[in-house]
Design a protein around this nucleic acid. Sequence first.
DNA 1: GAGTTTGAAACT
DNA 2: CAGTTTCAAACTC
Length: 743
Amino acid sequence: MEMDTPERTHVVSSSTAISKVEESPVFNFLNNLSPIKPAKPVHLTQTFSSLTFASPPAIFTSPHISSDRESRFLGRCQTVNISEQKSPSKNVDKSSTNEGDESELQDNLEKGKSIASTPVEQPTGHTEFANEVPHTFMYDFGSPDCGPIRKVGLRRCQNIDHPQQEDPKNNQTEQRCDWESLVSDAADLLIFSSPNDAEAFRGIIQKSPGLERGLGTSLSNLPQNNITDSQKMQHSFQLDSGEQADAEVTLESLEIKKAQEDLGCDDLASMGIHPSGGLEDEATPFGLFADGKSLSNLQHGMRRRCLDFEMVGVHCRKKFPSIRSSSHSKDNNTSKNLQLKSLNNKRGGESSRFILPGIGLHLNSLASGNSDCSAEMVEIFPSESQAALLTGQELLPTHMISTTSEKGADESGDIVVEDNSLALVLVDPEELNPDSPRKKRRKVEPGEEAEACKRCNCKKSKCLKLYCECFAAGVYCIEPCACQDCFNKPIHEDTVLATRKQIESRNPLAFAPKVIRGSDSNTENRDESMKTPASARHKRGCNCKKSSCLKKYCECYQGGVGCSINCRCEGCKNAFGTKDGSVLLVADSEAGEELAEKHDVISLKPENLRAEEQAHPSVLPNTPSGLSRPTEQMAFPTSKCKPSQSSFLAKLGNSTEKIGKSKLIILAPPTKFEKPPQQLEGEDEMPQVLRGTTSGMSQKTASPNGKRVSPPHGELSSTPSLRSGRRLILQSIPSFPSLTPQH
DNA sequence: GAGTTTGAAACT
DNA sequence: CAGTTTCAAACTC
């Protein structure tokens, strides 16, 4: 060995020289003199080659070496590998490798920095490491210390969107496992691709003390540069994945990360705030983490996904239950922790659901329900944010962002409301105070929630049948529910799931959104669609006989969609569209009046609307004048809300004048509205749900431009929540006066 | 808040 | 598939 070291140094310093030396008779002579040396080099070489791992020689020689690892891990991985490989290079055998390889090696060395600096012992460890590495990727085995880490690596590999980011991690993890001490030294070389990863590791570490030893040090040692780098990575990641590519969002996320660093990730994790979602998201699905922190991470990750991928529907669904629980207890800060815990638990349960087969439908159903719940969502997030605020308000922005983004994806109208609430949160420290306006708002909410995300009142169904709105929506019952003998609770998750399966077996679409937007008709042409009354339609259609499809008894009407051929209703007067397609006419008729009346109740003041229409008959160019209003009204009457929004928006778009100042404000973000049409395009029920199927309302409503302005809640139908959402909007309106230009 | 109406869900 | 019953929401007072 001793003899080797000097040679190694030589090799490292000048690879070319090495080859010459080897060839030189003197070298051969020396080798002959010391039988030991030759044997080792050969042995090593074989070992590596056999492994197909990048043997030192192989490394030099070529790309072949890289094998699986490199294929998976590009760029940075090479760097890491180089560092690892260095030690091998030291071996005499390695020196024997081709010159071309040497040149590569040098490059690598430059990147990797100091191979020479690595301790002599490394070679041995390195060989081991080399052996292990391939296995690590290929198989899930490992020493107790390394096992978890490797798993993570595997996971990541599977889910990896960005191999580069992961690669570094894997490399690090591996190195740490085998070379903890060495790694610490080389930590500088290693770079976590993303902050997310770092957090994820932290979370892992928390769970597994063993890992913490290995990783903890390295993490702690990570240079700030790495962090920044990771931040950048995350940023890029967001951009890549993210439809939400908003620079602001990313910036905030960065800020959040910084804040986390300042505060300490642990604290943040405890708070349930996790700016970075990356690994967490991935990890959770695998069920790796059971504890609250990990869950919180998951939650955050979930959010992230929504943000990044606009998996809003799913996200919302997952969150919903938790949200509900949290929403109720929001008032007390002390309770917040408990809430969070409960949320975590619930979420965990949800996550499990998420994994379970058949859940998809459930989730979808949730989505529909979620749409309703969007209002809650908004509030809920703030609550969490509040918790976060306890430590630092900085976190809030993320929540806000996330929430908005989510909503944006799912629901335009609700989103607006949320924004308001969020704005309040940020502005007012009072939120923390129970007396804060927010709290007041929440107080209002209970009623709203009850309506919005309807709370059931089941007495005999045990909330395990579709009679139960909660169950039908795929959500657990919560406090507001007045149900009796309720089994639709996390505690009875098994029962709930079993029941679900049973129901699904009977009707696979039982939990799917009842209202489906027709891809074709729906979307943008909805105004035109008035021709086809129900571009968005109820799946099965209604069977109304006495309500004339003008009351919420009618699921079509309730869902804000017109009746279709599927309906067996009698005397259909559905304002959204009659079975026979004579939608508009109806609007003018009784239904329209009724709707208008209801509008009044809502405080929408149909008067204004009418006045507007009169003043601006052209406001709704797409829709026939008569129809436009009625339809809009239609939407309102039921929930008092969502539909109205869209309608308002449309009107507002055309004429901000009368409608008003306050109302217009709410409508504000046009972008959100833009999304719905896209959603409409997706025909698949599931996707729609996930996306947050647009409600008929939104579809119906037309922007002044003729474009559909409104919201997405496709499923408004189901949605009591929509209703609530609208209410919120109305309420929120006052808050936004500033936004509305005063005329 | 109690009672009625209504139509979906569930059952046969 | 049709008819009946059960159920809970929607509605009315």
